[in-house]
Design a protein around this nucleic acid. Sequence first.
DNA 1: TCTAAAATGTTGCAAATGCAACATTGTTAT
DNA 2: ATAACAATGTTGCATTTGCAACATTTTAGA
Lengths: 208, 208
Amino acid sequence: MKNPFDNISKKNKEKLLKNLKSHTVNYKNNTNITEIITDKNEIGIIVSGYLQIVKNNYNGSSNVIDTLQENDAFSSSTFYIDDDYEIIAKEDVNIIIIDYTELINYNENDKVYNQFIKNLFIILNEKLTDKNERIEILTKKTIRNKLLEYFKIMSKKNGSKYIYLPFNFINLADYLAIDRSAMSRELKFLKDEGFIEIKGKRITLLYR
Amino acid sequence: MKNPFDNISKKNKEKLLKNLKSHTVNYKNNTNITEIITDKNEIGIIVSGYLQIVKNNYNGSSNVIDTLQENDAFSSSTFYIDDDYEIIAKEDVNIIIIDYTELINYNENDKVYNQFIKNLFIILNEKLTDKNERIEILTKKTIRNKLLEYFKIMSKKNGSKYIYLPFNFINLADYLAIDRSAMSRELKFLKDEGFIEIKGKRITLLYR
DNA sequence: TCTAAAATGTTGCAAATGCAACATTGTTAT
DNA sequence: ATAACAATGTTGCATTTGCAACATTTTAGA
């Protein structure tokens, strides 16, 4: 993922942030910052520490479905979070906050600013690709078709019949929005029918 | 939706497009341009005419799930299209094509160019919001919860308990990625249980 | 190395859903 | 006005899925 301050010197970065009237916020490790972050028209950029998006399940268990690392940028308004999710600050996180309206209405023809917007444009484009892929998967109606679509996309990315899962099966099930045990069952069927082979996090596609 | 050429004069637009080595393509009414459009690293902007994203169902029927109008911008690589979908040109469509790499690597500190990137940034941000909303809905596991999440989002947008469906029920079912008749059944249950009222395309939320 | 916790695998069962088929209502062009 | 078509409503049924509960395997920490 691209860094929002690519091609911007440290000095220029400070100046820009000042011009954009940005401010930084700090949260201690394990603070729940869901309320503070969402539903504002702001851009956030993580300076240090990280954020976890945690999903709370009905039965009391919970699992991390996403992690926002250093230099990750996020738009708090597009950060769709409902009652089942929480955003947790990790390692005394530091976040730069920029008001979206301020960002858009800043009208100097400032080289640094323009570079910054361009970087954000590239980042959003990457994010949009990811979201589109996920939607393509989620719109499949059966677990099998969701899995196959996921495999197709991953294999295309790798240019290979091997897929290396970027997360564990619990998180894969969350990504596909299906029940983990039902997914496990379907994976077994796919194995039995000779479509795939699974070794740890490596899946081999045995068809076409 | 924002126009990608907002705050750019006609003259400057022409100059910019030339600098970016863009070209235009034309397709006659009802041409299937799926192959031509997808899987390229390009930005497209519709000048005249429009595009329809058509979904073909297994049983031979098909329906329009999205329409891209004049001034709509799209990134052909993020335009996720698989075998079930087609992109159809309507009304002898005219599209400006800009190579993405060219766009990103154009390094003049050109006021018009910077404005253009900023406009595209804003457009992507809007699109990202929409995609996030849809993902939030699609990750709900039951038809009922998908509907309720959709209602919640729409009602929040309107700031009202009234929802005016922006499409018909066939397309709503497609948007929610559920079977239309099953959706119809669930809507009936919601009506019977006193949660909602439906009059044509207006849905009234009777809870909270 | 051993142990506790986490992840993964398995299965029965009830509930939800897709699909098909058809009825009813609404829309549009002539 | 009415015919043809499109959209919406309805229902039975087989399939798929979520959920629960538990077994087995893997991982990580002491």
